[in-house]
Amino acid sequence: MAGDSRASANAAAVLRAVLEHGPVARSGIPPVCGLSPAAVSRQTTGLLRSGLLRELPGPGGGLGRPLVPLDLNTGAVSGPVTAALHIGVPASTFGLVDLRGQVLARRALPHHGLDPATLPQAIARQLRAFLDEYDTGRPLLGLGAALGGWVRPDEGTVVRHEALGWRDRPLAAELSDALGLPVRLDNHARAVAAAEILFGHPDARRSLVHLFVGNVVDAAFGIEGTVHQGPGAAAGDVAHLPVPGSRTPCPCGRTGCLQATASDTALGAEAVRLGIVPEPSVSLLVDAAATGDPRADRLLRERARNVGRAAALLLDVFNPAVLVIAELSSLLHEGYLEEIREAAAATKNAAPAPPAPRIVTPHAGPAVLPCAAATVLLDPLFRDPARLT
């Protein structure tokens, strides 16, 4: 077993080196992964055989062909892909993602009229049709799935999702049975954090906090390349984090809680009340602001300031190298991200570094959800490539 563990660790070191530095010649891998040339040669042979790496056209070399570039196998014919699923409250998002986290195809499935009790079955049917439509013969590794609420990834169970009314639901097993695929499941805030560590901002590998602001509001913390789960995988519940200055009533009986103040549900309801949009949709609100509606812009900027004040508290507590904000308006328009940064700076207390440069949006931009969901499956693969071989 010790030998197997060592080989898996070595294979992971080579795969991560190629992820971060590829295309790279074999001779360039030992200095960046700390293994001997002989160990690198053994591992690259296995990774090429498994299809995770590929040789690119390049100049010839001597013994061991040291100058032939290696890269992750993202080839259009043989490159493995991962199915991705994010389950939101108003809609689900499907994706097909390669080994570099690039989203090759995606589609939304609105939940209008779908019963939450039978939603997984409806999702599986539509996801199967999506995968069949985009099937080009490339190996399909499985499905990475993410959603809000309390999720236990080791069990594949949704412990609690308030908006969908789910309790102790074995969602991974349900999806796996319906699709005939291996499925890994996690909370979407942790999934975005893992995607940033694997594919995104280099400083995220040192430490990061991710704040997800949608219909569900939650967070994740990672340090030295690992996302913290906590006992029972319950870490990240920030729905009742206080927002400085907010007096919005919360169903918990208090005022100023983050979810009641800044969630998509709260923002959409306020936009309808003010007559800005006909239905409680943040996407419609963002569109209205983009077309010049000052009321929509004011509402989005107010939300951005509330998110920034909450972000300042997270910066004070964790002092991460990077704080990643996944919030629709700031993903699409830089001005709302600047509003978040300015509010955080004005609220900042303890941590010595200025907050603005450290507050960023996810590297995948509007494709953040399928990229993060795929990472639920890809991250374990990069940690132990033997699970595929």
Results as ranks from 00 to 15, higher is better:
R26Y: 03
L331A: 09
T347H: 00
R184L: 15
T375L: 01
V24L: 14
G214S: 15
Q229A: 07
W166C: 13
V272H: 14
L52P: 05
V97L: 12
L315K: 00
M1F: 10
A12N: 05
P249W: 07
T389E: 09
R295D: 09
L267F: 02
L314E: 04
P153E: 10
T82S: 14
D264R: 05
A367L: 09
T347G: 01
A194Y: 02
P66V: 13
A172I: 04
G230I: 14
V243Q: 01
I359R: 03
V243Y: 03
H240D: 06
D132Y: 10
H112T: 15
R254I: 04
A343N: 09
P69S: 10
P139F: 07
P352S: 10
T226A: 14
D132M: 06
D186C: 09
S207P: 04
T226M: 08
G79E: 03
N73S: 13
L67S: 07
H240K: 03
L332W: 04
A219Q: 10
F221Q: 04
D218P: 04
R184P: 08
E20I: 13
S92V: 01
D71C: 13
L284K: 01
V89Q: 02
L267W: 02
N349F: 12
G22Q: 13
A173N: 02
P244K: 00
A351H: 08
A262S: 11
D115Q: 03
